[in-house]
Design a protein around this nucleic acid. Structure first.
Lengths: 337, 337
DNA sequence: TTGAAAGCGGTACCAG
DNA sequence: CTGGTACCGCTTTCAA
């Protein structure tokens, strides 16, 4: 089913059919009606590939995320999608599972599709990409809670600052032995996240820290927490890299008969919806995901009146206190228990 | 950056470059090396739209889901994606938010992209679609826990049977007043889900049921549960349409000072990972999402040796007992409390 | 083994 | 207001 057949059936040229499909105005209404009827009857659906090829422009923005399963990424994605649709853009999504190899594949796919703009909400990185991206002339926005990237617009959260807030808060509650539950993706050589934790702890004398990591999933958080708790370290507080792993940690604690926050305090990060619904509700750090999404679209979808935003934005995340944290247990009463 | 420029730089024809990109074999290795070098230096990325147009085939499968935010859909999506990639297919995803209008838009988009196959994991429907889909010649698989569809391959879960198992189980525990938490998407005229619940309850004399519905989210479940609990009905058990809304209900119960399962029993549906991690862990009904995903791909990605599966598959879901259900509270002891 | 050229299904410019 | 037609960038015979 092609444009030509519609044209034939409506007894007009392909050019006219094309006009009806796009700039409907410049066609006499009786002709247009005839064409539309033909389209209808033939159940014609224009071939988008052909359209893009001929038209040159695609009105498509690409979104690549590390782990769509984590609501954190999903929330940003959703905002981008909404903004895009509101402006007549399509969105194509790709998930990398934190694999930089998959990131490369996905980026190439996006370039191949000639997307109007690309949003990369990922923690992983591949060195060859920034150059490739650069001379693909694709506008790109990187979002990460890690290191700033060169030559490309990027938005980041001051993870370091967020973690400091958590550490200070726990310290003020009397905690001294702190565990950190990460996920595999932060284990790389440039584990900015892990480093932030270590540094934040190092600032405060008398604080000890031990870390463990597993997948960025509920189960991963549970396993990492298990490792931490089996090590003999006996943390009185566990800082988790995000809310999902924190919920995993909560379960491990529960199954060990440890109560939160009486025996152990737990913190998450991101403030996804689930952090309010789990039990106990998580003390966490809020990252304004909708704002991030809007900012990204601001870069990628140039609006008439609105001026270009600046080229690096850093967000200072806020601590959200809930029920999963409390005073460190008293060592004496614990022994006498 | 186009193929032609690569060709020029490598001093070969565009045909040769194309060959190098695809069927690398039929090119003399020295030529190939020269071409690859050019591609490398020019950072050439083939235009996929042009490729698809010229090639005719796209090796892309489309997936449309109602609510990616719900891990149930995501799990199926993920399986499909894995299978697709394993077979050299791309995947393009679309989310409908249960809006049938969006379903129509998405289906058209997929047809426009000339996807090899389309998987629709959705609860909503639009009448015009089945015809449109039919003569688009796109292989389609519908998945739903609702009514079977005509003329199109479809997989469904016997939701009815699953609910019966839940109802019978609760009845055996002594529950008589049952609440049902649904979501807006099942409110339509053909609310197969809701009907299943009503029928299942009607089979058993002495059972009363009251229903409420809100969004298919944690918050939605909470609000629906709130409506139920504020109605004066005082259910001793709440059946939720799925695990996510059940977790929402758990929170509402908790905040009302009601304990689960001592005061009220709660059940979910789907058996997503979260159902084990919430507190208390949910009694739910397992739907084999990976199996569903594999079956879908079985239809959509024709494999050499494997025979075509049959055209309708019904899955009988299994009850999973955990901690959110227990004996109905004794009315007397409750009063004396 | 490689090149020339005819499409693939549209869009858009130029005439009429 | 409508038709003719030259591309868009790549694949794929057909010949050489």
């Amino acid at each position: 089913m092609k444009l030509e057949q519609v044209a034939r059936k409506a007894k007009v040229s392909t050019a006219t059919v094309s006009r009806v499909l796009n700039d409907a105005s410049l066609v006499k209404s009786t002709t247009r009606a005839r064409v539309m009827k033909a389209i209808e009857e033939l159940k014609y659906h224009p071939n988008l590939h052909a359209r893009h090829l001929a038209g040159g422009k695609s009105k498509t923005i690409g979104v690549i995320v590390s782990n769509l399963e984590n609501p954190f990424f999903f929330d940003i994605y959703k905002t981008i999608e909404a903004d895009a649709h509101a402006n007549g853009y399509e969105v194509v999504m790709a998930n990398t599972d934190y694999r930089s190899e998959q990131l490369v594949t996905s980026v190439r796919l996006m370039i191949g599709r000639r997307v109007t703009g690309l949003a990369a909400i990922v923690s992983e990185m591949a060195p060859e990409l920034i150059e490739e991206l650069n001379d693909s002339h694709t506008p790109v926005v990187f979002y990460d809670v890690g290191t700033p990237r060169q030559n490309i617009t990027n938005i980041r959260v001051d993870y370091r600052r967020g973690i400091e807030k958590v550490v200070d808060y726990l310290h003020s509650l009397g905690h001294r032995r702190i565990g950190f539950v990460g996920h595999h993706a932060i284990l790389g050589p440039i584990n900015e996240r892990l480093k932030a934790v270590l540094d934040a702890v190092a600032r405060v004398p008398s604080l000890e820290v031990r870390t463990a990591a597993d997948a960025d999933t509920l189960e991963g958080g549970r396993l990492a927490a298990r490792a931490l708790l089996s090590s003999g370290f006996e943390p009185t507080a566990i800082i988790c890299v995000n809310d999902i792993t924190a919920v995993g940690a909560l379960r491990e604690l529960r199954e060990r008969g440890l109560s939160v926050p009486q025996d152990v305090s737990v913190t998450g990060f991101d403030n996804v919806k689930l952090s309010e619904f789990c039990y106990p509700a998580l003390t966490t750090v809020h990252i304004p995901r909708e704002r991030v999404g809007h900012i990204i679209c601001g870069y990628l979808i140039p609006k008439p009146g609105v001026p270009e935003p600046t080229s690096e934005i850093v967000i200072d995340p806020e601590l959200v206190l809930r029920d999963s944290t409390g005073p460190a247990p008293n060592p004496l009463s614990e022994t006498s228990n």
